[in-house]
Design a protein around this nucleic acid. Structure first.
Lengths: 200, 200
DNA sequence: ACCTGAACACCGTTCAAGT
DNA sequence: ACCTGAACACCGTTCAAGT
């Protein structure tokens, strides 16, 4: 809930300091940016994002002075959604199945969003917070999924969380286009299957 | 000597088919692109490159319809120069010293040229020939340097060429700015020192 | 045969005018 | 307090006119 791009949270003095229309615009902007980034990549025209949100370009620049501000915000959200998916999957599926499904969800995060990989090791200091957040937010969720699956006796007990966190992006590195993505999915599925115990 | 971007080497039927001014322009363009890329990165304005070469933009586009065509051509040249440097260093220095100096030259190639790293694993099919060329051209030269140094008894005999080829780009991955470059240099120097035999 | 550069389309960014 | 969008600067790309 910390105030996006602004370092001093001036708008935090009271909740009502944020005008209703400003909040609506902010939401529309984030929604639009997510859609446009997914469709056209993170270098999509700012005008297109503003139009998709039904907002003037000036408003976009007011909220996100730098393109990287918008990208970082969106990517944090994507990471959040992926992290939350772990909880949902946990509540809806048996432990091993929840783990398997989340691994595919993790593939989505890394390979569908063209911006993440680029931002993660672009070296541009503007993206510095992303890798940290990526690790901090995702690893704990995976650990829970893994612990549950191990506790249920469905999968092996000798798996390191770090290995899985690293393995997925590695397998997705070469994932170019539809075919590459499909291959990455198969590799991750194979890997996940390998986690299951041979002897129950 | 194969004709750059053009697949059919129409200009190869006779050497005289290339007009003298066209050749001069081509040379000027390559020279200018190398300078501008080094100074401003591979996304520098096309106009700036044309101006630096003292040529109209149309001429630039005639020779290199896509920006990637220009980048690939320049990068191949940079790789060539780096490969040739191995011969020169070999003839001017003792084997181990030649190897050590070339390793630093290799650092230059990977980290100074902002375009190479980006192009090497951008996934854009336009850059597809680069990684292959990179490997094919550099590895044999390094092998010779290494063999010479081993034969002279100055360094250990159990070093894999592949390991060194990979190690340098890896160490340069995190090299951002002056300070990062300096660190990468120290790491590579350290590594190179490690190659020397403890007992003569 | 090759070159030039004006011309067009498009994008980033700002800021005076509005509400 | 916030929003709009015309306006400006700049860049990619083409192509009619030149030599």
């Amino acid at each position: 809930m910390a105030g996006g791009a602004s370092r001093q949270g001036a708008e935090n003095r009271t909740s009502r300091a944020v005008r209703a229309d400003a909040q609506r615009n902010m939401d529309a902007l984030l929604q639009a940016a997510a859609t446009v980034f997914a469709a056209s990549g993170v270098n999509a025209p700012m005008r297109q994002i503003a139009a998709e949100a039904g907002v003037g370009v000036g408003t976009l620049y007011r909220h996100f002075p730098q393109r990287s501000d918008l990208i970082v915000t969106i990517m944090r959200r994507e990471i959040d959604v992926c992290a939350e998916a772990a909880r949902v999957l946990s509540s809806e599926h048996a432990p091993a199945e929840a783990l398997a499904r989340w691994m595919q969800r993790y593939v989505d995060l890394v390979s569908t969003k063209r911006g993440l990989a680029a931002a993660l090791h672009s070296g541009d200091p503007a993206y510095e917070p992303l890798p940290v957040y990526f690790e901090k937010r995702l690893k704990p969720e995976l650990r829970v999924l893994l612990d549950n699956a191990v506790a249920s006796g469905e999968i092996r007990a000798d798996i390191e969380v770090d290995d899985l966190v690293i393995a997925v992006p590695s397998l997705c590195m070469s994932a170019q286009g539809e075919e590459g993505l499909a291959r990455a999915r198969r590799m991750v599925a194979l890997l996940t299957d390998g986690l299951r115990r041979s002897a129950p």
